[in-house]
Structures are given as structure tokens and as C-alpha cells.
């Protein structure tokens, strides 16, 4: 039972049951049990990760990763959509902290600005327009909670086993992995002038990609305006078309 893969499989099974219990299923109970199972599964799953060498880096990583993942589970399982949006903001902050930890400073700031500053506020705005009374009956039910929890968690299990197998040093199918040294990183991704380097890369080698992203944003803007304008004259007239 001490084989790492067995622990991983156990964590996956516990996580599936916990998520199934946590998802809204009408009047069914068991959220507290599901939460406990999910926390146990998360602990088992994180126990399979490897240390980063320093306890400060380890501690930061575990705290931020736990914030990101627990808040993501909260987003998925909350009954009230406003709470879903707030959990989502917390998950974003955890993910931005993880991006800082990996050395992507600009991306961390851009994530907080764009997601938490713009997208999340827009979601809350639509929520306030459409469903100001909070919970609706559709938030208390979910489609096939058991099957979807099992499928998603099984995918997580397959992915993590595959990641562990590929990155293990004894994998015969792969050429030997040569990680970068600290000197190479300091001259590359972890340069003190990292944001300037990223900007130079964006507007030098990747200029076409930036242009395409700008065109995509323009197209989405026009598309959103067209979609809203096209149907704005009709309200609640779709009832008669059903069946």
C-alpha cells in the first residue's frame, strides 16, 4: 500500500466520492462528509509531490496551491452563484501567487488585473442583472453529479500518473531530461529585467501572435455587440416554440 501509485489511486477515489458528496444534488445531504473526504484526498495527493529543496519555497507552494485548489472546488460546489464568483476570485489569487512563485511576474499581475479586475466583475454584473435574488432552484441540482465527478477525477488521476512517469529519472522511453541550471535561468527567464525581456520577445519574435490576439479581441467585441443587439427587442418570446 506504500507504493506511490496506490496512494495516488486512493486519493483519486476519495476525491471522486468527496466531490460527488459536495456537488449540489437537490436535498441530499453529506456536504460535511464530502468536505472531509476532499481534504484527505488533497493531502494524500499533495504528499506525492516532491520537495523544492527549501522549506520556504515548499511552504509557499503548498499554501498557494491549497488556496487555488480548495477555492476552485468551492467555485464548483457552491449553491449560491455569488459565492461561486467570490470563490473563483480567491482561486485566481492563488493561481497568481503560483505564477509569481514560478517567476512569471508580469503574468501574475496581468492575471489579477484582467481576471479579478475585469472578468470577475463582469460576471458579477451579469449575475446581478439576471438573478438578483441569489439562489435559484437550478443551483440546487446538477447533471449526473456522480458520473461527472468520477470522470473528471479519473482524468486527474491519469494525468498525474502520466506526469510522474514522464518526469521520473528512470523512464526509458524519454531522452534524459536536462533541467536548466540557476546561471542559465538567471540569464533567461529569471532575468532581473524580465518584464522588458518578455516585452521584447512579444513584439519581436511573436509579433504575429500579438497581432492575431488583437484581431481576436476586436472580433469578439464586434460579435458581442451584434449578439446583444440582434435579440434585444424580444423578451420571453421563446416559450411558445418549445415542442
Amino acid at each position: 500500500m506504500l507504493d506511490p501509485r496506490h496512494i495516488l489511486i486512493l486519493a483519486v477515489l476519495l476525491g471522486a466520492v468527496g466531490l460527488w458528496l459536495m456537488l449540489p444534488r437537490g436535498g441530499a445531504r453529506g456536504r460535511a462528509v464530502g468536505t472531509v473526504l476532499g481534504i484527505v484526498a488533497l493531502g494524500l495527493w499533495f504528499s506525492q509531490s516532491h520537495g523544492l529543496g527549501q522549506w520556504t519555497a515548499d511552504g509557499m507552494f503548498f499554501v498557494l496551491a491549497a488556496i487555488a485548489v480548495v477555492a476552485a472546488v468551492g467555485t464548483v460546489t457552491s449553491r449560491n452563484p455569488v459565492y461561486c464568483a467570490i470563490w473563483f476570485g480567491l482561486s485566481l489569487l492563488g493561481a497568481a501567487g503560483l505564477l509569481l512563485l514560478v517567476g512569471a511576474q508580469f503574468l501574475a499581475v496581468a492575471t489579477v488585473l484582467v481576471y479579478a479586475g475585469a472578468i470577475l466583475v463582469m460576471f458579477l454584473f451579469v449575475l446581478m442583472v439576471a438573478q438578483p435574488e441569489g439562489k435559484a432552484s437550478c443551483d440546487r441540482m446538477s447533471w449526473e453529479a456522480g458520473i461527472s465527478a468520477a470522470a473528471g477525477i479519473a482524468m486527474v488521476g491519469v494525468l498525474s500518473v502520466a506526469i510522474g512517469g514522464v518526469l521520473a529519472p528512470s523512464c526509458p522511453a524519454m531522452p534524459p531530461i536536462v533541467p536548466p541550471t540557476q546561471e542559465e535561468l538567471a540569464a533567461g527567464v529569471l532575468d532581473p529585467h524580465q518584464v522588458a525581456r518578455l516585452g521584447g520577445e512579444l513584439f519581436g519574435r511573436r509579433l504575429i501572435a500579438v497581432e492575431i490576439a488583437g484581431t481576436l479581441l476586436l472580433a469578439a467585441l464586434v460579435g458581442a455587440a451584434v449578439i446583444v443587439n440582434q435579440f434585444s427587442g424580444r423578451r420571453h418570446d421563446g416559450q411558445s416554440r418549445e415542442q
Binding site: 464548483v76 493561481a95 473528471g152 494525468l159 498525474s160
Partner: peptide, 26 residues
């Protein structure tokens, strides 16, 4: 390894939510 594991976990949790929740915003 650790970052790929967390990324996989976030992806899986989001997948579960997208498949099973019924509110369009969620």
C-alpha cells in the same frame, strides 16, 4: 512536477464544474 500536478487538478475540477453545474454563469 508540482506545477503540472496542480494544473491537472485545477483542470479536472473545472471540467467537473462545467459538466455538472446547471447555472450558465457557474
Amino acid at each position: 512536477n508540482d506545477f503540472l500536478l496542480v494544473g491537472a487538478l485545477l483542470f479536472g475540477v473545472g471540467l467537473i464544474g462545467f459538466v455538472s453545474r446547471r447555472n450558465m454563469i457557474v
